[in-house]
Design a protein around this nucleic acid. Sequence first.
DNA 1: CTGAAAGCGCTTACAG
DNA 2: CTGAAAGCGCTTACAG
Lengths: 364, 364
Amino acid sequence: MESGDPRQDAADRLEHRDEPPIAGKPVRPHRVTAAMVAARAGVSAATVSLVANGKTAGRVSEDNVVRVRAAIQELGYVVDGIGSSLAKGVSSLVLLVAPDISNPFFAKVIDGVRQALGADYQVLLSVTDAGSFPQADDIRRLLSLRPAGLLVDAPNARFLEDLSASIPLVLLDAPGLESYAPSVNLDVAFGARELAAHLAAEGHRTVAYLDSVTGTDTFTLRREAFLTAAATLGIHVAPDRIIGTTIDVGAAAAAFASTWPAWARAGVTAVVCGTDTHAYGVLQEARVTGVRIPEDLAVAGFDDLPYSATSNPGLTSVHLPAESLGFEAGDQLRRLMLGEMLAQSQVTLETSLLIRRSTSVSAP
Amino acid sequence: MESGDPRQDAADRLEHRDEPPIAGKPVRPHRVTAAMVAARAGVSAATVSLVANGKTAGRVSEDNVVRVRAAIQELGYVVDGIGSSLAKGVSSLVLLVAPDISNPFFAKVIDGVRQALGADYQVLLSVTDAGSFPQADDIRRLLSLRPAGLLVDAPNARFLEDLSASIPLVLLDAPGLESYAPSVNLDVAFGARELAAHLAAEGHRTVAYLDSVTGTDTFTLRREAFLTAAATLGIHVAPDRIIGTTIDVGAAAAAFASTWPAWARAGVTAVVCGTDTHAYGVLQEARVTGVRIPEDLAVAGFDDLPYSATSNPGLTSVHLPAESLGFEAGDQLRRLMLGEMLAQSQVTLETSLLIRRSTSVSAP
DNA sequence: CTGAAAGCGCTTACAG
DNA sequence: CTGAAAGCGCTTACAG
């Protein structure tokens, strides 16, 4: 693990702008500027700017385009983002603010965002303490970087009040907050109703609900939609059969372990979980306790995380289109940043129920 | 879910810099500049800058400090990051580049980084497609934002070659790459040796290894350190008893399911996993198959994720100090950004073995 | 202690 | 098609 003399090695390789932080001679690589490119190509800095930004159509002679491109290549010129942003009044940064990045679901959302925004924007994630949103102060400093746009995932009203940003802004997964900004939401209610119908069809009449206690609106929505649909289908979910934990397999398992005896006595035959993660806890604890899934207890969740397809048994889950969520939000934002009108400022994406073995013996 | 008319609501609230993207009257909130503050306070812009940056000691009269502060308050002035960066030659951005953010481990690393860097720097996460590093082009564009420093987690040599950045740079979890830049590493070898000793003490002689197939050096290090220590302790790990999967519970479970019969026949009594996530797959599949943990098979992992303490049975794991990793790296970087010398450019953090029920019936 | 001025690197009307 | 010039918002020697 220890290399010869890492200290000296590092000093040899590192080049620092001002002073070499470790040792050695000051290396000061001078930034390549548009002026340098211009000099080399025998044109003005204005022309270099035009070429570098691809705005040459009818404004720069083919000759000069070629000459400038060559100079850019040779010198390894990259347009300075700071200078450019100051002149343009806006940077090419898109800031993505999210409370929970430790989630395979979120990784897919990001993929979607990047696809929608392409190479024209640089997507950076605002990093905050786990589960929380940046403070008003942090926000102000971030906005002083003049981002081209802002994407906010699963926000709460308080954060949006503080924000009051005057830049293109799109919300993701922000049910009930559509009044603050254009939003892309998931129709979790639809999946919840499908799930209720499925459980009813499987003959379940007494059901429990394991909720998520994070204060994000989507969980309230999932629960209420399920409970409402269940009620109309003759499924009974007594209030004391609704419990909640954080989004953590262990916490869910522990909660299930302590409540299951009472639930079993009450005749509960199915439990719906606010997230797949909660459901994993139930699946696991059920195995330990010898509760057979789905014969003794049917289990279902929301999210359709990758693992739900490969778990044993597979987990029935309401599929949420993570990548589409990111893509649509990115696409809306792109339009806003281009100054286009939004055909619809509120997009709702469909969800669907994936039936697997955890609720149905006949599932694949 | 549908509010009255979300489209119109959004239009009412949004204020956009250039044109209102949806409808309504153009609202153009003029940016508050230092010049405006100066005018209000009856001083020059230079004085405003001094006050806003807290460089007043012996340079601005108490009177003016008070007056400027008041004007800043009243106008809600925030120093423009772009203008400031251009003048200073560097921004207050710290870029964190990492291949895998969907990991509770990484969330803790970030917490550590933020603690070390405090409010003086803005930490933003470079977002790339899952599991990959930014391309050389992306890097160039990011560097054109003139970040104050760069933190790179679990890099590979190729990325570092491409990078060749001339700004303060610290690597995290980059064993064997110390020659590229100052690094903070984890002494995973120590934990691996502890684990080998523990298994030897528990009487295991025939052991299997479930590796991670991502090409990150830490996994090679974990495996080799364990195998080397095991060999000296009389533990036998036949080459064909080393298998690998991606970091995914389902994949690990499937791999274990298909190999276990052969392992059992060969007399394997313990399996060491490259990550706790792999181990969860084994724990789960073992339950399904009726393999008793630890009586029939001892299971251990690396990472000590939160769930390993609450799983059933608890998972024996090599604890990796995620938050310290982030803090130390952030601290080193802070020093570099301040132009300080680094006392040591290579820091290695201790790891430790946490013994739980998955390897020891007598564990708590 | 204070302010005028130069300069950071770029983009964009503007005049030619 | 081209370039000189102004300007984006700030910071920092510099002269006073």
